[in-house]
């Protein structure tokens, strides 16, 4: 297993392009239903609340709190061989949806459920950026 294998880079598709375009511009773009007024995530074609197709995009605040996390020790993809152990975390966003992402800028053993987080955007190559989360300085 090569230590230099690249991590997988997501390929924006038609439905998710605004999310990835937003991330590249430094915004956490989420879908927001123009019919029922609710936020949703992950990205999809229709609103999961009202099943309407009138999903728009809005910039979310990027603020959230850590709901839970786990520290991954298994290498399921060679691109992560040098990353383990790394955290995969669930973040409750201020808008009321929950995202899975990585929390960065903190040691894994310092992660605390409930801690305040702010979205940051990481260039992962091939012109793609993705949101990650960083603790808000106390």
């Amino acid at each position: 297993m090569s230590q230099s294998a690249a991590k997988p880079v997501p390929v924006p598709d038609e439905i998710s392009a605004p999310f990835f375009d937003g991330a590249r511009a430094g915004h956490l773009m989420l879908q927001h239903c123009t019919a029922c007024g609710k936020w949703s995530f992950p990205v999809r074609e229709r609103c999961p609340h009202c099943l309407g197709a009138k999903l728009g995009w809005r910039a979310a605040s990027g603020r959230g709190t850590l709901y839970t996390f786990a520290i991954m020790h298994q290498v399921m993809n060679p691109g992560f061989a040098a990353e383990v152990p790394y955290n995969v975390s669930q973040i409750d966003l201020a808008e009321g949806v929950r995202m899975v992402a990585n929390v960065i800028g903190i040691a894994n053993d310092q992660l605390r459920i409930g801690m305040e987080l702010q979205a940051v955007f990481e260039d992962v190559g091939m012109g793609v950026s993705i949101p990650k989360f960083r603790p808000v300085a106390a």
Partner: peptide
Amino acid sequence: PLGGMTGLKAAYGDFGAN
């Protein structure tokens, strides 16, 4: 490569049920 949200999960290293 993996498209869209599936690719996003993979980019976070979010694999499997564990």
